[in-house]
Design a protein around this nucleic acid. Structure first.
Lengths: 170, 170
DNA sequence: GTTAGTGCAAACCTTTTGCAGCTCT
DNA sequence: AGAGCTGCAAAAGGTTTGCACTAAC
């Protein structure tokens, strides 16, 4: 059974709680956001300007291997880096808006059902699971329709007798 | 509505079907595996030794943006590269054994249910979804138990009067 | 003939490694 | 005191970009 806190769990297994690690753990625990290594590094540096980026990576790796944090990609919105969050929460899916970048978390029973079905179907022993969903959030759907409409109007206004080349697939 | 084949879809939107692309599309379509850029490159090079790695990346990017292939991480088993598969199949989860690397695909109704629930819950418009599950497959669970048992036996055999340091969390 | 696509070299971003020195316990 | 950890520099792995040339339509 997992300990109440990351700190506690680390202490239990004899991992040293150095000043650097305390800073990083505090940030991961309290920020409530999905931080990537660089963001974490920037934030940590404010508390300890000498703290090195490498230490951030090493700490994250240790936490990941110890099953204390989950590594996310968030559909690679904005780069190929990874994002991290504690595993102290219930399992959830991440829902990422590909236009505004907002990330929502979905808790709900289909996730547990999926997990159970995979375990029984394959006789698989699940250690980690990740569901990420990309698309447009409610707000951005509206904004997007407006943009498309405006583009249509602009297109019509600039129409010339000469057939214009088809707009490229973005 | 999606076209029957990737080729058809590309032709429709006026994308040029160059020799290089034909080779790559053929490989993605027919291989039935989850290929990463490097594997794809190596295979393509056998058919056209001059084909460049960069072309592979550019083609994959185009297919991804056009919604014709899905990009997977497969829990980063064996590196941080991405894997690709056509979207010509029904949605499915990927189940990766973290010991032997085998990848299974899970089709099943909980995935659709999850998707529907997220769409209605958030008013979200889903474009892509990815579920990846890591753990031990049926076979590796057995092998693993055996390994642990052997380690226990070896441990007992080498036991000394002096208390041995706790084995580190790998 | 145009314009999209390719190859090549070089850059880029994220993450890892080797090693000497520092610091928790 | 000593193993575990850190910082620094440098490398590695994966992917992207700039540019001149080539080929598909």
């Amino acid at each position: 059974m997992p300990a109440q806190t990351i700190q506690g769990s680390l202490r239990q297994r004899g991992v040293r709680l150095t000043r650097q690690r305390q800073i990083l753990l505090e940030l991961i625990d309290k920020s409530g956001q999905h931080l990537d290594a660089e963001m974490l590094y920037q934030m940590a540096k404010e508390q300890d300007p000498k703290l090195n980026r490498v230490t951030v990576y090493r700490t994250l790796k240790m936490l990941k291997q110890g099953g204390l944090v989950d590594e996310l990609d968030l559909m690679h919105y904005g780069g190929d880096q990874h994002f991290y969050e504690t595993r102290m929460k219930q399992e959830h899916a991440h829902v990422i808006c590909l236009r505004c970048g907002k990330v929502e978390e979905f808790f709900g029973e289909p996730l547990q059902r999926l997990r159970r079905q995979i375990e029984t179907h394959f006789g698989f022993h699940i250690l980690l699971a990740r569901t990420e969903v990309g698309g447009y959030c409610a707000n951005c759907q509206i904004v997007r329709e407006r943009e498309v409409e405006q583009a249509r109007v602009a297109e019509a206004a600039s129409e010339t007798p000469v057939r214009r080349s088809r707009s490229r697939a973005q």
